[in-house]
Amino acid sequence: MTVGLPHVLTLAALLFGIGLYGALSRKNAVHVMMSLELMANAVNLNLVGFSRFVTPEAMTGQFFAVFSMVVSAAEIGLGLALVIAIYRRKRSVELDAVQELKG
C-alpha cells in the first residue's frame, strides 16, 4: 500500500469540490467565506504535494503556498470585515439581503 502524488492530488480535488459546493450553495456570508478558505486550503495542499514530489530541493511549491496563505489570510480578514459592514447596514448576513446590483 503506497501513497503518492496522485493520492495527494485526489484528496485536494475532493476538498476543493466540497468547498466549491459550499461556496455556491450557502446563503450565509460567513459560511461562504469558510468554504472559500477550504478551497484555498486544498490548493495549498496541491502546491505542497507537487513541491515534495517534483522539486524537493528548490521548495518552490512551499514558497508559493506561504504566499498563497498570506493572500488568503488577507482575504478572510477583509471578507469578514465586509460581512460586519454589511451587517451594520442591513442587520443581516444573508446574501439574499444584498442584491442591489441584481438585474
Binding site: L5, T10, L20
Partner: peptide, 19 residues
C-alpha cells in the same frame, strides 16, 4: 468539477508514488 479534476489526475499525473 470534481469528476473532471479526478479524471485529469488519473489521465495526467507526471509523477508516480516514488518521491
Amino acid at each position: 468539477f470534481t469528476g473532471a479534476m479526478l479524471l485529469a489526475i488519473r489521465g495526467f499525473c507526471p509523477v508516480g508514488v516514488e518521491m
